[in-house]
């Protein structure tokens, strides 16, 4: 369906451009407002660019509020989610490259968990963590989200394409199974793992529900839970709210824009189409 002439092309470009403007408007407004002082951010008519740009809200986040603690907690969660990704990769490799008894059943069990909505497991998982004494602890926040069945599925799909001969040759050379996995399989799986690392980072950086349910103590709050608390406690301080939001959103934006090519291509690799 090619376009017939320049006039049509101009119309479609304009439509896309206006749409793009609408989509990015909330982000632009967020960033600009975060540099306005408390009075200017509420002024009518609003200013587009801050009259006297200020960093006071950002300084506030770290001096009067505990965004430093939230940031450390969020990074801890990001770190453990990468270990979760390693476990997912191991499982994907196990299902993709080994023959063993009951393999189909185990794999079906893994796939079935994808169908279970989070709301159904929310309350019982809390009760299980409570029985294990893990409520209000970092372990309790991390454990429920560690394994993602969908990721195991995607990684397995990739692992299947690795030739058996390659692994057999390494075994004949006397390499151990763990050595093969770390030195041969992981480098081979780089294209799909790169995408998974980025998506896992974004997902864990944004994680909200489990920290919210499990953490009673502000010491365990993540950035997103801290931001929700900030909104409750500073209802009309929009400059501060926008600074907190910007602090959460901008790192992800930067990472996404740098790696967007891999993510978009990852969708084709993963064969959802």
């Amino acid at each position: 369906m090619d376009l017939k002439n320049n006039f049509e092309r101009a119309i479609i470009n304009t439509v896309l451009f206006i749409g793009g403007l609408l989509v990015s408007l909330p982000f632009v407004w967020m960033i600009l407002s975060s540099f306005k002082n408390e009075r200017e951010v509420l002024s009518i008519p609003p200013t587009l660019f801050p009259n006297a740009p200020t960093f006071e809200h950002y300084i506030n986040l770290f001096t009067n509020l505990n965004f430093d603690v939230y940031l450390v907690n969020t990074l801890v969660i990001v770190f453990f989610s990468m270990i979760g990704l390693l476990l997912n990769t191991m499982a994907g490799y196990g299902f993709g490259k080994f023959q063993f008894k009951g393999k189909e059943i185990w794999f079906a069990v893994v796939l079935l968990t994808m169908m279970i909505p989070g709301q159904v497991t929310m309350i019982p998982t809390y009760l299980i963590l409570n029985e294990a004494g893990l409520t209000n602890s970092m372990a309790g926040i991390i454990l429920p989200g560690l394994i993602a069945a969908f990721n195991i599925f995607l990684i397995r799909q990739f692992m299947v394409t690795i030739p058996d001969d390659l692994i057999e040759a390494a075994r004949l050379d006397g390499a151990g199974e763990m050595y093969i996995f770390l030195k041969l399989i992981i480098p081979l799986a780089k294209p799909i793992l790169a995408v998974q690392v980025i998506l896992t980072f974004i997902g864990s950086w944004n994680s909200f529900l489990w920290p919210l349910i499990i953490a009673n103590d502000e010491k365990l709050y993540t950035l997103s839970v801290g931001l929700a608390l900030l909104q409750d406690q500073n209802v009309s301080n929009y400059g501060l709210q926008m600074a907190g939001s910007t602090f959460m959103v901008v790192p992800v934006l930067i990472i996404f824009i740098i790696f967007q090519k891999h993510i978009v291509e990852g969708f084709n690799v993963s064969g959802i189409k």
């Binding site: 997103s224 926008m242 910007t246």
Partner: peptide
């Protein structure tokens, strides 16, 4: 890819 809490905070302002 952006955080839902941050988005909700920004949209509440809008």
């Amino acid at each position: 890819v952006t955080n839902i809490v941050a988005i909700a905070v920004v949209w509440s302002f809008l």
